[in-house]
Amino acid sequence: MNRADFIIYWGGNPADCHPRHFTKYTLTPKGKHVPMGRKGRTMVLVDVRETPSVRAADIFLQVRPGKDFEVITTLRALVKNQPVDQARVAETGLTLAQLQDLVGRMKNARFGVIFFGMGLSMTRGKHMNSAAVLALVAELNAFTKFVCMPMRGHGNVTGADVVMRWTTGFPFGVNLCRGYPRFNPGEFSTVDLLVRGDNDAALILGADPGATMPQPAIDHLARIPTIVLDPKVTRTSRLARVHITTAAMGISAPGTVYRMDEIPLPLRPILQSPYPTDEVVIRRIHEQVKAKPAWLPASFKKVPCA
C-alpha cells in the first residue's frame, strides 16, 4: 500500500475471493510513497481465464492451463539475459514480446510485488510453481526491490499455520501419534489421511472439508465418528456424528485472526451468543480427556532434556 508501484496477481481472482484486497491493501489506497494511489501503480493479472479481476488490471496475460511453470522459468531466463526457446514460449499461450515487456516492467519497478493464488500453487506443477515464483522474486532483488506473498483461502488458515509452527515447529501435515511432532505433507496431511482411511475419528474446527475435499475423503469422514464445531450448518456438519454449535468468531466470540501477511488482528464481538466459544468447548473436552489415565507407559515419564 505504501510502496508498491508494480503489482502482479498470478493464478487468483481477488475481485471475487479477496474483495477488500484491491481497495484496502494494494491498488487504490494513496500510500506514503505512492501518493497518486491507483494512478501511481501498474497491475498485471496472470491467469488461465478471464475473471472479474481483469477489469481492475492494466495488463492481462492469459496463460494456457498448466503452463505457469514454463512461463515463470522463461521469465527467470529473461531476467538474467539468457536465451530462450521461441517454440516453447509459444506453447504457453504468450508471446516472447509480452514476456520481455513484463521483465522490463519488473526491473524498472521501484517496488514490485507478486501475489500468487491457488490457481498457481494447486494446479499442474503445484509446489514447483510456488518455488519457481519464489526463485524469480529472489533473483529480481539483484535489480530492484521485489517481494511476493501467497493469497490464501479459508478464514484463519494463516493463524492455524502460525500457531502450529510455534507449538510443533511445522506449519501443517503434523502427526503427533508418537508423542512428538513429525511432518510429512502427502503422508500426514488431512486429505491423504482421510483418503487412505488411516484415522478412526475426526474433530473438525473452523473448516468445511465436506464442501472442498475429494469425494473419497468425504466418504471416510461419513464412515467414522466425526465431530464438528461450527456456528452454522455446513456440508461437513450434515455428515458428522456430532455437531456442536459454537459462537461465531468476530461476531459473538473474541479471538485473534492472522492476516495473510501473518500480522495478528484482535477480533471483538459485537453480539452476544447463547452458544459457547470454540475455545470453551475444546477446553471442556480436554479436561475430560485429561481425567483419563495417561496412555504413556511409566518409563516415558523420564524425558531427558538438553
Binding site: 510455534w166 507449538t167 510443533t168 515447529g169 503427533l176 508418537r178 508423542g179 512428538y180 511432532p181 495417561a294 504413556l296 516415558f300 515419564k301 524425558v303 532434556c305 538438553a306
Partner: peptide, 20 residues
C-alpha cells in the same frame, strides 16, 4: 532433539529454532 508429550511436558522440538 524431540520432546515427547507427557503428563508434565508439552510435545515439541529442540534444535536450532526450538518450539516455544
Amino acid at each position: 532433539v524431540k520432546f515427547i508429550h507427557s503428563p508434565e511436558l508439552r510435545a515439541g522440538i529442540g534444535g536450532i529454532t526450538p518450539t516455544t
